[in-house]
Design a protein around this nucleic acid. Structure first.
Lengths: 130, 130, 130, 130
DNA sequence: GTGGTCTAGACCACG
DNA sequence: GTGGTCTAGACCACA
């Protein structure tokens, strides 16, 4: 598999290992990587982006612990077959709650009109990822 | 001024000093804090939220360096006289942007329907603060 | 806090970071470490057992990701206040299922009488941990 | 002999070669495999479970080194003639011990009531093999 | 070939 | 003071 599906920005304040982990999480969530798909090896990714293998390994290990990836021994990592298709709608709404509360608090502090705020969020929700 | 206008969440990944600084920036932009208004002392804020005075001081100093606040000798900090008329609507919308983008990103990752998300935010915007 | 509550055996096949993580998990589960209790710092544990700080950090980070520990910024790690008292009985029985199936399969392969097997498990369940 | 008497779980943390070796050890101890009985060839086992022949070979070699199996030139592996009368009941209980301890440890960690655990194991012991 | 573990040592952000 | 991140390089287990 091609290590170039991943992008790394060493200048970003976001840790490299997390950049990798979150990209993979999104690629899996979006279905661009499907259960069973193999991932580029730790060494490939490390070489392609001139970073330390351990940094890549850290991202992979974290996703494995979460059940997003699984180890195929001797053959690297792959997207997990996962019985964990997302939770119920209510459960997922609950996970969104903190971000919404944060946005609402900021809106009040800025004394912004609700309709403008909602219009902008609607716009953002319509955009393609990234 | 009351130290309780500030909210602090020690469990948030966002550094505490930045939580404070950004809240003040928003309150000034919205005109809820006006030029000349005094701020609660470092000690008051620290005591009210059980955090380190140095953390509060760091937030104040940063805003002072930016010209948002100014030090009134012997009287603590106050909102700077400058061009701190409450920001324009567009400017304030800009300050809200990061929170909205965060919420939108989470919504997409959770594959939540836009109408449900917008309905919930509308509800939160209608509520009284805390 | 005292770094000596933790034991480390470098000769064990079990990775050091996991030895530490599992000990802490047990100490928390058993109530010997209570919510809010502070843990010895990464550097203390590392020095006390002559291991690398990163190895200790790895154990702490993993437990933080699981919600067992939480970071008190600038003050080290502590046992989380955790809203996560275990799931329902049925859910927890489900988590035990693999281990029971494994034991049952071994019993059949060894052609052992069920009553002897059950008697031995009853005995083991009655023992104090460790 | 049928390669399907062996079970392999590639997802288990236990190395595959050891899964195979320990199963064979138990089958011999219980007398389900008797001195002189031939074993399925490395290729058969590998093909039946979609694993690497080298992995199967490693399990066989280890058991040969222990004297549990012996290599019949040109005829593959077989259970060694030795003192491989099926082990005594006590000896076989000993081989079951690790699995039982594992199950007991999980039960305690999950704080499950002993009677529920024992009832479930009794049920599993009564079932026909897969 | 694969990933996992550990070390020694550096630098950074936060409080 | 705290933990977090990253590197370079070593060694090991597994397939």
């Amino acid at each position: 598999m091609d290590a170039r599906i991943l992008h790394v920005d060493p200048a970003s304040p976001e840790p490299i290992y997390r950049q990798i982990a979150e990209q993979l999480r999104r690629l899996v969530a979006a279905g661009q990587l499907r259960p069973g798909d193999g991932l580029p090896s730790v060494r490939e990714v490390a070489a392609a982006h001139a970073i330390n293998p351990m940094t890549v390994s850290r991202a992979y290990s974290q996703l494995e612990a979460e059940g997003v990836l699984e180890r195929l021994r001797g053959k690297g990592m792959a997207v997990a077959a996962r019985d964990n298709r997302g939770g119920s709608l209510a459960a997922r709404m609950q996970l969104l709650e903190p971000a919404l509360r944060e946005a609402a608090r900021h809106s009040r502090e800025l004394e912004l009109p609700a309709d403008r705020v909602l219009a902008r969020l609607r716009q953002l929700l319509g955009e393609d990822e990234r």
